[in-house]
Design a protein around this nucleic acid. Structure first.
Length: 271
DNA sequence: ATGGTCGGCAACCGA
């Protein structure tokens, strides 16, 4: 069977619900993972998603800030939320799909929203950067993020780091900019390797091809300047690595009216 | 080298 899984930092799901609906009708993902929903669970537009075919939802939202959700056409077996850095700031949710979804072998999906880290890349003077470093270290050390080699698992989301040279428009000019400093790139890559995860976007499109999923709101002519970053990622466990038939970065959604600054990334799996 | 823009929610914080 074919399974489409999308990750998208939507930057307010209520403001952009019509844009999400448009994307759903065009791409028809089976599982839609959103970040920065900025929506408490009791205010989440569940009815709208039900009408769009997503009867199943795992919510981890809060008022005004952060928030992650998994919406699915297929029922899941269970979901859980992990807290990082001793905070309850809604940056992770996990769903496990199995027999109810018609899967013989279970499939675990971790949806993450890693802290952005503020402007100054120095943990001594910027507590937001210190939080980001601690969060990445916890991801590295987290036992539940280390699937067995034979286990089917996906870790995706807005990881807020562009780890490779060609994940940014200018490696040299970005070296001191939060999201591409050497310590962040190293910590994200170390966390990925520690869990045995495969960077499926880069398997599909190796360097030196540029890959971006985010373009700043501060650039009025974002498309011409094209100074993007690859902040959103889809990692798979080793056994799923060669089951990714396609990766689509829907860049056109950055050009929508009232866009998110992130665009959807969709992996098509052959299970 | 600097400042540039968003969203939430009602003054700034976070990105």
């Amino acid at each position: 069977m074919q399974l489409k899984v999308t990750t998208w930092n939507i930057n307010s799901v209520r403001l952009r619900i019509d844009l999400v609906a448009k994307f759903i009708k065009a791409m028809r993902p089976d599982i839609l993972c959103l970040q920065e929903t900025k929506c408490p669970d009791d205010a989440f537009p569940l009815k709208r998603f039900k009408r769009l075919g997503y009867d199943n939802a795992a919510l981890n939202g809060q008022k005004a800030y952060h928030g992650v959700v998994v919406l699915s056409r297929l029922p899941f077996e269970r979901c859980n939320v992990q807290s990082f850095c001793g905070k309850t700031d809604c940056r992770h949710i996990c769903t496990v799909f199995g027999e109810r979804a018609g899967l013989r072998d279970p499939l675990t999906i971790h949806n993450f929203y890693v802290p952005a880290g503020g402007d100054i890349p120095d943990p001594a003077v910027n507590s937001k950067f210190a939080h980001k470093m601690a969060f990445l270290d916890e991801m590295r050390d987290c036992a539940t993020l280390r699937p067995a080699p034979s286990e089917r698992a996906i870790l995706l989301g807005d990881l807020n780091v562009a780890p490779l040279e060609h994940d940014v428009w200018s490696h040299k000019q970005m070296l001191r900019v939060v999201s591409h400093t050497p310590i962040e790139c190293e910590k994200l890559t170390t966390a990925r390797i520690a869990g045995g995860w495969v960077d499926s976007m880069r398997i599909h499109t190796p360097e030196p091809t540029k890959l971006y999923t985010w373009w700043s709101y501060r650039s009025p002519d974002w498309a011409t300047a094209d100074r993007g970053r690859r902040l959103d990622h889809i990692w798979t466990s080793p056994i799923l690595a060669d089951r990714v038939a396609d990766i689509t970065i829907a860049k056109a959604y950055r050009g929508a009216e009232q866009p998110s600054d992130h665009v959807p990334v969709t992996a098509t799996l052959e299970l």
